[in-house]
């Protein structure tokens, strides 16, 4: 018995498949990025769903091939049930369910955010609960207290944009292509992060986040500078904007850690691939865990990792499994 788990993740614009051993070691982790949404200035749900249908089968095939396993050696199928783009999710859910049914193996339905938390449980350097976890990406920004492998307690979340969304929108204002996060980070590398004093929503109480203020501040700064001057100071604007977002995230994280006292911290989500954020969290001087960049951005290994600790669907529930969209929490 290999106990190997096949993971499937299609919540946004990456078609992902991975194989994890029973012990949580990655045997393969395939991420098929669609890279076609740039020209639309953002992920288009219908186009993402169409591409998943074409990319997922080859992604699963290559995940199995790279793991050196056939489907007959897979003993569990794990799939992202939500939240995410509903049309995109349904491609992964439909295919994963069918594989599990035809092979008569158990199906595990995984919450995408639980998947980001579970990226920290991947062997060999797994990080054990309890810890405080920051998940930040283009679709979500939240702080959670993780006491066990199978769930988390929500401490706070964004009141408006997600952190990754703030990166994307700032990048667009600075004339950078979509997706904005990596482009903005690259531009910021040559800028002065102290040049502009952008707000970090310090006055938002508790552990919630808000990125509307920093976005507006960048818009006004660009307007006040005028097009020519703003272009000349692009790198400084980008660096200052990035610093404000990173500080806003870390401030809340520190608040949560102060209140919690466990002194252990982990991060995840696409924004956790951001260099300055990773450095800033590492400098907190706490016991911290930052998964590799390709385990922070959306991937199926984290979904399979979460499934190691979650109950299997009953056979009838597996056949009837439906996806749930963004905003709908179970």
């Amino acid at each position: 018995m290999s106990g190997a788990i096949l993971g499937v993740e299609t919540s946004c614009d990456d078609s992902c498949a991975a194989v994890l051993s029973a012990e949580g070691v990655i045997l393969s982790n395939v991420i098929s990025s669609q890279a076609i949404h740039d020209k639309y200035g953002g992920v288009v749900p219908e186009i993402a769903a169409r591409h998943h249908l074409e990319l997922l089968t080859p992604a699963i095939d290559s995940a199995l091939a790279q793991a050196g396993l056939g489907l007959e050696q897979i003993e569990r199928v794990a799939v992202t049930q939500g939240p995410g783009l509903i049309g995109a999710l349904l491609v992964g859910v439909g295919q994963a369910k069918a594989i599990a049914a035809a092979r008569a193996i158990p199906l595990v339905a995984v919450d995408h955010l639980q998947g980001h938390v579970a990226a920290n449980f991947i062997s060999p350097d797994s990080f054990e609960p309890p810890f405080v976890c920051l998940i930040a990406s283009g679709g979500h920004t939240l702080l959670a207290r993780v006491d066990e492998h199978s769930s988390y307690a929500l401490l706070g979340e964004t009141l408006d944009d997600a952190a990754g969304e703030a990166f994307d929108k700032g990048a667009r204002m600075l004339g950078l292509p979509f997706p904005g996060g990596p482009a903005l980070e690259a531009l910021a590398a040559g800028g002065d992060s102290e040049a502009f004093n952008f707000p970090t929503a310090r006055n938002v109480k508790g552990f919630d986040f808000s990125f509307a203020g920093v976005k507006t501040a960048l818009l006004y700064a660009i307007r006040d500078l005028g097009e020519e001057e703003a272009t000349r100071q692009r790198a400084d604007l980008a660096a200052s904007y990035q610093r404000a977002i990173v500080e806003a995230l870390v401030e809340r994280l520190e608040r949560a850690l102060d209140a919690d006292g466990c002194g252990r911290v982990a991060i995840g989500g696409g924004v956790a691939a951001n260099g300055p954020l990773r450095e800033r969290v590492a400098r907190l001087g706490l016991e911290s865990h930052i998964p590799a960049r390709n385990l922070c951005t959306d991937n199926a290994a984290m979904i399979a990792s979460a499934a190691r600790f979650l109950p299997e669907c009953s056979p009838a529930a597996a056949l009837a499994l439906d996806a749930y969209p963004s905003g709908a929490r179970r």
Binding site: R50, L53, T57, L71, G87, G94, Q95, A98, I99, A102
Partner: peptide, 19 residues
């Protein structure tokens, strides 16, 4: 309907892959 079509095709692809 686009979503309906995709549920059918994704299901068929998974069944064919597994069987």
């Amino acid at each position: 309907t686009f979503t309906g079509l995709r549920i059918g095709v994704a299901t068929a692809q998974g069944l064919a892959q597994a069987s």
